[in-house]
Design a protein around this nucleic acid. Structure first.
Lengths: 125, 125
DNA sequence: GATTGACCTCGAGTCTACTCAAGCTGTTAT
DNA sequence: ATAACAGCTTGAGTAGACTCGAGGTCAATC
């Protein structure tokens, strides 16, 4: 029997702060969270909410910006017919990450060149 | 014979906007830039300034935060006896970049896992 | 002589993703 | 019953790195 979770529980479960949880809701990254009318309007999270939050957290960990996540969440709510669209968002994101890695590798080269410069090995930045 | 460059020239030369150039000066990332007293106090940039700006741009491109660049600039002004110190800032930054690359590679794995999930190949995020 | 264009300063606005303060309600512990 | 605790809302603040608007000066051009 489940009575649902309070925000503090969810924070413990997911590792997100209660601030972040409320923020994500406000930003439309989560489906609406019902309130306990008896209890000062407290949010009551279900297992489904936990699942959603894990999904959002997972996407954030991949470095995806919130507006893309919002889009994926929106598509997920629509249903399975949006899977291809969601996948293409992920592919796009994958590409962006690959590019970022390439950029950073170039960066690394520059830094090492700069260090070499300080070692008197080269003469240009 | 050089009369010095105006901010617009420098912007063209370095690829930084005039806003950014003024911002960098304000933030102490460049040595003081003399003004033309005849001409409404226009900044007059020398070749040395161009060199400095290229350096700052180069460091920025490596993803170095402005306060570290400010420190390198400060040390550079002092003289050659600060080269070791500057190098250690660069080493530190190099380490940070390497870590970032590692993080992004993990990220990439997650995204690919997520895509696989949408392809029905796995069952967990 | 009026407009255009490049420059000036100062201060404010932008973006992203939170993070928190103030002021309030309701439950639980002493 | 009084305090501590967990939650609520609204709105503001934070950080980093710009980016720009307003209002003004000056020289050259039409």
């Amino acid at each position: 029997m489940k009575t649902g979770f309070k925000i503090g529980d969810v924070s413990d479960k997911t590792g997100l702060t209660i601030y972040t949880l409320r923020y994500y809701e406000k930003e439309g990254l989560l489906p609406p969270i019902p309130r306990d009318k008896q209890l000062n309007g407290k949010r009551i999270y279900s297992d489904d909410h936990i699942f959603w939050i894990e999904l959002v957290r997972c996407l954030r960990e991949t470095g995806m910006p919130l507006d893309k996540i919002r889009e994926i969440v929106r598509l997920s709510i629509i249903g399975d017919e949006t899977i291809e669209e969601r996948k293409s968002i992920l592919f796009e994101h994958e590409k962006a990450v690959v590019e970022k890695i390439e950029d950073l590798n170039k960066t690394l080269k520059k830094i090492r060149k700069k260090i070499a410069f300080y070692n008197g090995e080269t003469d240009k930045c």
